[in-house]
Nucleic acid binder design. Structure first.
Lengths: 230, 230
DNA sequence: ACATTTGTATGTTTTTTAACATATTTTTAT
DNA sequence: ATAAAAATATGTTAAAAAACATACAAATGT
C-alpha cells in the first residue's frame, strides 16, 4: 500500500540508513503516502506541520508570498528529498508554501514518531544539522545574488541552479525541468515579461535554445560568465 | 584568565545548561578567550572554522561580499550568541565574514571537543537544530523583503530589526546600536547615499529623530506601517 | 594646529526594471 | 469543434534606484 514510504526508509542512501530494523519498522508503521497532481498545493504558508514530508517522486517548488502577493521561489525540491522540514524542526508553522510542479508522490512521517527516533539516534541529528546549515548557506547566498545581480545575471544563475538541481536530459544540454516563464521569473526575482524577454535575448545570443518550455544550454561557459559578472 | 568563557558555559540560560559538571569542565579546558577592537575582523569569507565562537561582549556584523565587492550584512550578533556556527556545522569554510562593530570579547570552543560533547548530548543537538531552522526561516524572509520592498520599506524594516535585536536605551526610544550610514545601507540593500537620504526623509516626517549615529524612534507604528507596506 | 582622510549630506543624471498595453499562440473546458 | 482562458511575446512608458558630482563636517594622524 504505502510502498513508496517503505522504499524511502529502506533506501541505503537515505539518512535513515543509520537506523536499525526495529526503528525502520516503527517509521514505516507511522508513515502515509499521498499522491499529488501537477499544480496541487502540498501545504500553505501558515499551516502547521504534521510530520516530515519526503518527496518520493516528482518535483516541488517552495515559495513565499511577498509584497502585493508577488511570489518568490525559495527552493526547488527533487526526489528523494525532504520538504517543509525547516518549520517542523523550528517548531513553527510553515513560512512558505509547497506546490507540485509535476505529478508527485510524497511520504509523510508522523511527527512524534520522528522525534522519538531522533532522540535515540545521534547520527540522524548530525545529518539534519548538516542539512540545515548547508541550506542556510545557500539561502544567504541567494539573498546577496538576488539583490545585487542584474536581470541577466539573475536569470543565468537560475538556469544554472535548475541544471544543477535537476540535471540534463540525455542530450546533455536540455534542463530536466519544465517551468512556466512565470515560475522562472518568480525564481529569479523579476517580472514575467522580463523573464520572457531575457530568455529570448539569451536565445538570440546562442547561449541557450528555446522550444516551448524546453531550455537547452548551448554555451555553459557563457552562462556562467554572465552569472558571475552579475 | 578566560573567565569570560567560564561565565558563558556556566550560564543557566545558555544552551550548555543541559550539560553535567564534567562536560562543562571539559569545554572550559578547551576554550580560549580573545579580545577584539572595533572594526577588527574576527574571520573572513573562505577561512576554516576552528571552533564554536561565542560572543561574550560587544556587537558583531556578519556580511558577505557580493557583486563588485558590494557588502551585504546577513546577520547582526549580540551577546550571548554564537557566530560562525553555520559553517562549522555544515563542515564548510566560512561563506561570510565577521567584524566587530564595537570592542568585543569572544570565546572559542575547540571544534573536536564540541563534537565529542554533541555526540553524547541529545538536547544540545535539538537546540542547535532549532536555532539553525529558525535562522533559515529568517534568511528566507530576508531574501523576499530585500528583493521586493522599496527603499523606504527596506530601511524601515532594518530599523525595526535593529531595535528588536539590540533593544532601546533607557529613554525607550533610541536604538541601542550605533552604525555608520554605510552599514545601515549594507544591511538594507541600498547605496549609502540613499540610506542617508531616506533617513533624512524619515526624520523630516517625524518618524525618527537623528543625532549623529543615534537613531531615536518617534513613531513606531508609522515605521511598522512603512515596513509592512513595502 | 593643520592637513588628510573618512563620513555625512544633497542635488542631478543615467540606468535599470517594473508597469502597462496589445498581439499572438497555446492550452483547457465545454 | 469552438470559445474561453492562460501563457508567451514584444513594444512603450513610467518609476525606482544607482551612479555621479560636489559640498561640508567630523575624526584622525602628524
Amino acid at each position: 500500500m504505502n510502498v513508496e514510504c517503505h522504499n524511502i526508509i529502506d533506501n541505503q542512501m537515505s539518512v535513515f540508513s543509520v537506523l536499525n530494523e526495529e526503528e525502520k519498522e516503527l517509521l514505516k508503521k507511522n508513515s502515509t503516502c499521498t499522491y499529488y497532481k501537477k499544480n496541487d498545493i502540498i501545504y500553505k504558508e501558515g499551516d502547521k506541520p504534521s510530520g516530515l514530508i519526503c518527496l518520493s517522486k516528482g518535483k516541488v517548488k517552495i515559495f513565499k508570498e511577498g509584497v502585493g502577493g508577488r511570489e518568490q521561489i525559495v527552493r526547488m525540491a527533487k526526489p528523494v528529498g525532504f520538504i517543509g522540514y525547516r518549520a517542523l524542526f523550528a517548531e513553527q508553522n510553515y513560512l512558505a508554501s509547497a506546490e507540485a510542479i509535476e505529478d508527485s508522490v510524497i511520504c509523510t512521517i508522523e511527527k512524534d514518531t520522528l522525534f522519538i527516533i531522533l532522540k535515540s539516534n545521534h547520527d540522524l541529528s548530525i545529518s539534519i544539522i548538516r542539512s540545515l546549515a548547508s541550506e542556510l548557506g545557500f539561502s544567504n547566498n541567494r539573498t546577496v545574488t538576488l539583490t545585487q545581480k542584474h536581470i541577466r545575471g539573475r536569470l543565468a544563475e537560475s538556469l544554472l541552479f535548475l541544471k544543477d538541481t535537476y540535471g540534463l536530459e540525455e542530450d546533455n544540454a536540455t534542463i530536466k525541468v519544465y517551468l512556466s516563464r512565470e515560475d522562472i521569473a518568480n525564481l529569479s526575482n523579476m517580472t514575467t515579461s522580463n523573464a520572457i524577454r531575457t530568455l529570448s535575448t539569451f536565445a538570440s545570443e546562442k547561449i541557450i535554445a528555446l522550444d516551448g518550455r524546453k531550455i537547452k544550454i548551448l554555451d555553459l561557459r557563457g552562462l556562467e560568465r554572465i552569472s558571475e559578472l552579475g
